[in-house]
Write a protein that binds this DNA or RNA. Structure first.
Length: 920
RNA sequence: GGGCACUUAGCUCAGCGGUAGAGCACUUCCUUGACAUGGAAGGGGUCACAGGUUCGAUCCCUGUAGUGCCCACCA
């Protein structure tokens, strides 16, 4: 016997065990050898992470698809695994070491540190996996992978070596985004632009009367960023045709002026033509270095003074200008963002922001600070470290992304892989067409160490292992040499990019690779289209010569109910595990699926989850009702052979619901699919069908009763199946309760067959039950409006009814009486006086309530009905009066409006007649 | 600067060329033999604004305003 209320917390772990014991989610089972393969690779969560709402949504959708396809008989592989997440993980462990006041990673050295991270991975790496299981994820857990496990690491090395051999990976010295906190280079994608606005109001300077030192110092002490500083660089000597002895340049980063090696003006800029012609030079203030004024297209005459300082070692644009103009590159910053020894002694070792203040103050003292103005500009920050990123000159490994992008673009253009929704293609193309070299090396310790070994002269040998590198070195040096391995590791996304094939066993020629590659669909959020999706497309096409997946389903991000991004600092994080504890995994999953249609974000409120928990309870109680009424599944039950109209009707409704759910899932319209089953279960099955059949179940027509019981059991089975992808736990639990011939069911719902229903719907039956439903609704409506006590039973007298209507009324007599709380239904030529009247089609139903009803209220009710009917009919009439409407509209629309007029006329006539009787 | 979206009931959002829907909230009533995590009946919307296309526009097109996001740049 089912408990009165549904308790997810006690059920879920047990169901999970059942699935595990049955190895229900194992891919490649022999009995499915002939089935169509269906594969999804999970977006691997960070191994040290824990489940957040984004994961919950992402994995719910994948699980819905996997369960759906599994039930449709496919051989489903949902490939799980985790990502080593270089920076993030190293950060977590380092922070932990700091909190425990242990020696830092540099003190203990690389080997010991990496060992520690592995320890941490072993200890907490299972957390997120267990959390995914709590959500109900039907992954093939026996195939779990980790980006740094042996097989995947082999794949990484092999791809690196091959790309290097093909010239698509190379080493280069150029500016990178340097993170002074984590001491590593990061890729463009890991840089976020943060808006900076000056924190002090604008201050206009006057070089003749410099700022008072204290006042300026106070201002600068606040926050020296977000301002534009205008400096005078004195000319080394006067130039004929140029009326000043200095040139003004502006910058938001004063400290970098110590690394200036030129000033650029536009070649066409008349103001500076004399300076260019004279090959004028300026003396760089503070440093005392003489630097040239060069003509370069980069400088924009419209901006500032049209003259721009050039710091090739610390600015991406300046780097290019420097290259064109042959300017020196002077590095003035250390890896930690402090001034190097290549600046005047006074600034050496200063932090970059302190140096900024000093430079401004010192230039002011020299009368070279023209003005300071507040400005609004964006400053690059590390997405993890949140510190200001420095463009910094270093040796790094790069991947020629532009070349790899070409086939990846073509694959989407040709439709071999398609985005759902399609509009994400544009974003993808936009980025791929402008893709920059990808910096793949990181100065971290946790990750795949780059397979390059250096000889004594710095020449490197890229090889799959040290001995191959040694062989190559020996050939080159004609002697044995000591090799030193490159200390850098690869960007995390390098290994993630191989995920669709590395997890299937590549470079081995495994049966899984053959069977499941390319995978069916990738389900992910739009925030990692560039980071991950694009890289998988590039890598997979290069290595496998085949797309990694056929569809890319992009879903929204989950935000809080106010639409703000959930973040720990804002304190608005909704923990999926807390929600699961409170409402059950099914309620959370169903909520996320129902909201999955939204454009770019999902605003999640607790109340919504609660509503869906209530839906689960509703289903639970419907099953309980079935159980109490001995609605037992019959083995040979055939829905096509149903006789009772109510049962035929619900069979037809079930078919409609099933096809709506199927169609929704096939089109990745999770909201449509989940909405269809919700409406059917609550709005049709519970609200109407179960109520309508009660008289039969309690009656003594055994044939009808037997058929109805069997139908209830059958419909419930269909419901459990249709709902299972969304709510796997409660459905599996109820499935187990639905006995068959007195024997508890042995099979698992998750392995049952998906309903493919056909030929169950019948128009005549739908009309018949539709009439019953309409009558009941109308009576209920009148009862409320007439303030008839809910408990009072009243008679109903039907007049003007056709033979068909009379038959319907007689056939469903008991049902109608029960649901409309009627005492009797009788027929008469005319409606008795003093009645409330209901008009349905050709018939009028009278509720004789003389003395009970308020005639005034009845008049108002009828008048309202007439007004509504007249307005509706009037619209239809006006529409028909327009000849072009009739001439140019499709027939069914014309027909619809004609019907509105005829039906409306009839209704109005009867309502008016009813009104007249009252007034009489 | 370039791009992508969004604007529908008090709130959160579906819908989409043929007389506007759901959940929550609200009002009234109901402990009726599955369910008060429930049932019944209601109230509430010129579908942001202005043009256009169409027999017909909430839906398609153009523009305006507001909002959000992505990319790039910023002397």
């Amino acid at each position: 016997m089912l408990e009165k209320t549904y308790q997810p917390a006690t059920i879920e772990p047990r169901i999970r065990d059942d699935w595990e014991k049955a190895e229900a989610f194992k891919a490649g089972k022999p009995e499915r050898a002939k089935a169509t393969p269906y594969a999804i690779v999970i977006p691997p969560p960070n191994v040290t992470g824990s489940l957040h709402m984004g994961h919950a949504l992402n994995n719910t959708l994948q699980d819905v698809l996997c369960r759906f396809e599994r039930m449709r008989g496919k051989d489903v592989l949902w490939q799980p695994g985790t990502d080593h997440a270089g920076i993030a993980t190293q950060m977590v462990v380092e922070r932990q070491m700091m909190e425990r006041q242990e020696p830092n990673r540099r003190d203990i050295g690389r080997e010991k540190f990496v060992e520690k991270v592995w320890g941490w991975k072993e200890e907490s790496g299972g957390t997120i996996v267990n959390q995914l299981k709590r959500l109900g994820a039907s992954c093939d857990w026996s195939r779990e992978r980790f980006t740094m496990d042996e097989g995947l690491s082999k794949a990484v090395v092999k791809v690196f070596v091959e790309l290097h051999r093909a010239g698509l990976i190379y080493k280069d010295k150029r500016l990178v985004n340097w993170d002074p906190k984590f001491q590593t280079a990061i890729s463009d994608l890991e840089v976020v632009q943060v808006e900076k606005r000056g924190s002090f109001t604008w201050i206009c300077g006057d070089p003749e009367k410099p700022f008072e030192a204290d006042a300026l110092g106070k201002v600068l002490a606040k926050d020296p960023s977000g301002h534009m500083y205008h400096f005078r660089y004195p000319l080394t000597k006067a130039v004929a045709g140029y009326d000043k002895d200095y040139i003004v340049v502006a910058t938001t980063r004063p400290e970098t002026m110590l690394g200036d090696t030129g000033v650029a003006v536009h070649p066409e800029d008349a103001r500076y033509a004399a300076l260019v012609a004279a090959k004028a030079t300026v003396t760089l203030p503070l440093a005392g270095r003489v630097i040239p004024i060069v003509a370069d297209e980069y400088s924009d005459p419209e901006k500032g003074t049209g003259a721009v300082k050039i710091t090739p070692a610390h600015d991406f644009n300046d780097f290019e200008v420097g290259k064109r103009q042959g300017l020196d590159k002077i590095n003035v910053l250390t890896a930690f963002g402090k001034m190097t020894d290549d600046v005047p002694e006074a600034y050496r070792g200063l932090d970059r922001f302190e140096a900024r203040r000093r430079v401004v103050a010192d230039l002011n003292a020299l009368g070279l600070l023209e003005k300071i103005e507040p400005t609004s500009h964006t400053v690059p920050h590390g997405d993890r470290s949140n510190v200001v990123i420095e463009p910094w000159l270093t040796d790094q490994w790069y991947c020629d992304a532009a070349t790899l992008a070409k086939p990846a673009i073509a694959a989407i253009e040709s439709g071999k892989t398609q985005f759902v929704p399609k509009n994400w293609e544009k974003t993808y193309f936009e980025w791929m067409n402008n893709i920059q070299p990808w910096c793949i090396s990181r100065q971290l310790w946790w990750g795949h160490q780059i397979p390059a070994w250096y000889g004594p002269d710095g020449k490197f040998f890229v090889a799959e292992d040290e001995s191959s590198a040694a062989d190559a070195a020996k050939k080159h040096y004609k002697a044995d040499v000591v090799l030193k391995r490159d200390e850098d590791v690869l960007d995390t996304w390098f290994s993630s990019g191989l995920w669709p094939f590395s997890t299937l066993g590549w470079p081995g020629k495994t049966p899984e690779l053959k069977r499941f590659y390319p995978t069916s669909v990738l389900v992910t959020g739009f925030d990692i289209i560039f980071f991950w999706v694009a890289r998988m497309m590039m890598m997979s096409l290069h290595v496998m010569k085949e797309v990694p997946f056929k569809d890319i389903y992009i879903h929204a991000l989950v935000r809080d109910e106010k639409g703000q991004k959930m973040s720990k600092s804002k304190g608005n994080v909704m923990d999926p595990l807390v929600i699961i504890d409170e409402y059950g995994a099914d309620a959370l999953r169903f909520t996320l699926a129902r909201m999955a249609a939204q454009g770019r974000d999902i605003k999640l409120a607790k109340a919504t989850v609660e509503g869906n928990r209530n839906f689960a309870t509703k289903l639970w109680n419907a099953a309980r009702f079935a159980e109490m009424n001995e609605c037992v599944r019959q083995r040979d039950f055939d829905p096509k052979k149903i006789k009772q109209p109510l049962n035929r009707w619900i069979a037809g409704e079930t078919e409609r619901a099933a096809s709506a759910v199927t169609a929704g899932l096939e089109a990745y319209k999770f909201n449509d699919a989940s909405g269809a089953i919700y409406d059917f279960v609550w709005g049709v099955f519970c609200d109407w069908y179960l109520e309508l059949i009660k008289p039969i179940l309690m009656g003594d027509d055994d044939i009808a009763k037997t058929e109805t019981r069997a139908t209830v059991a059958w419909v419930l089975d269909q419901i459990l199946k249709l709902l299972h992808p969304f709510m796997p736990f409660i459905t599996e639990e109820l499935w187990a309760h639905m006995v068959e011939h007195g024997v508890a069911r042995q099979s698992l719902l998750t392995l049952s067959e998906w309903p493919e229903l056909k030929g169950l719907s019948n128009q005549a039956v739908d009309d018949e039950i539709g009439w019953v439903v309409k009558l009941i609704s109308e009576v209920r409506s009148v009862r409320t409006e007439m303030n008839i006590p809910a408990g009072a039973k009243i008679p109903a007298i039907v007049s003007g009814a056709s033979a068909e209507t009379q038959t319907r009324a007689r056939d469903h007599d008991e049902t109608i009486q029960r649901l409309a709380r009627l005492e009797s239904i009788t027929f008469a030529k005319t409606a008795p006086k003093g009645s409330a009247l209901i008009v349905i089609g050709e018939a009028t139903v009278a509720l004789p309530l003389e003395g009970v009803i308020d005639m005034d209220a009845e008049r108002k009710r009828l008048e309202k009905g007439i007004a509504q009917a007249e307005s509706d009919m009037g619209k239809a009439q006006a529409w028909l009066a327009n000849d072009s409407n009739v001439a140019k509209s499709p027939e069914h629309v014309v027909e619809l409006n004609r019907k509105r007029v005829t039906d409306g006329t009839e209704t109005i006539k009867r309502l008016k007649a009813a009104l007249k009787r009252i007034e009489a």
